[in-house]
Simulated scan of single mutants.
Amino acid sequence: METSAATTTTTMEGEILSKFKRICVFCGSNSGYRKVFSDAALDLGHELVKRKIELVYGGGSVGLMGLISQTVHHGGCHVLGVIPAALKPLEISGESIGEVKTVADMHERKAEMARQADAFIALPGGFGTMEEVLEMITWSQLGIHEKPVGLLNVDGYYNSLLALFDDGVKEGFIKPACRDIVVSAPTATELLVKMEQYTPSHQEVAPRKSWEISQLGYSKAPSPT
């Protein structure tokens, strides 16, 4: 399901209205050792609020997940957390933030987050964060979606990953146009501006209309909340 998007504009009161209605942020249940990562999560949350963008995220209330969800929720924007039932006791501590949707497994979690969002951003994170954003990059390459995918490259955290992508182009494993799928910037403001301006330039493997979530092995049946 594709979500609607409004045209980017600035109101007379100075508010920024984004073309994105809802952005999925991939982030971890850890905060990292350095304050710069927590600051980045808070900054991104404030930027989403400033642009009246709703948040889709992994449903936890600890670590960077908790920081960004609380910031967006307290700023008056809707928050949707999507979490597998098995992870609820591990990732959610204290009061849940906003709307929480419980799904069967990790596959359904990613499919639901992808359906709900107009764009994707990865904060610094571990294996789970990287796996989620890499799947969205792959889905763009395949033609499953045409939504921007961004890396918030806080203090160069993703430099090595971006260099790996560049090596993939150099060695003939990634097409140059597909490398452009990945949008990156060191700050939330710069990243959101770049994502607003993003236009796919790569040749999709298959047209989007040919893809169905059911073909990817994800159930369309509603899950208990």
Rank of each mutant, 00 (worst) to 15 (best):
F26Q: 04
K19Y: 06
L152R: 04
A163R: 07
C27W: 10
G81H: 08
V149D: 00
E47P: 07
G168L: 07
S69E: 03
K50H: 10
G28R: 08
A185D: 07
T138H: 07
P148G: 01
S29T: 13
G66W: 09
S214I: 13
D180M: 10
H73Y: 14
I144A: 00
M12Q: 15
L90C: 12
W211V: 01
L48G: 05
K194R: 06
C178F: 06
A188Y: 06
G172Y: 02
V100F: 00
W211C: 01
E135H: 08
E132I: 10
G94K: 04
P224T: 15
Q197G: 00
T187Y: 03
E135T: 03
F26K: 06
P224F: 14
E190K: 13
T11R: 10
K35D: 10
P186W: 03
G172E: 07
G28Y: 04
I144K: 04
S96H: 13
S223R: 10
F37W: 04
G126V: 08
A104R: 15
L55Q: 00
F127T: 15
R179F: 04
D105A: 06
R208W: 05
G94E: 02
G60T: 11
E131Q: 09
F20N: 07
K101D: 13
V100N: 08
A177N: 13
P207A: 03
R22L: 05
K101M: 15
V100S: 04
D180Y: 03
I181T: 02
N153R: 06
L123F: 06
S31G: 13
Q197S: 03
D43Y: 05
F26H: 11
A185C: 02
W211E: 02
E108S: 12
M106C: 06
M106S: 01
V182Q: 02
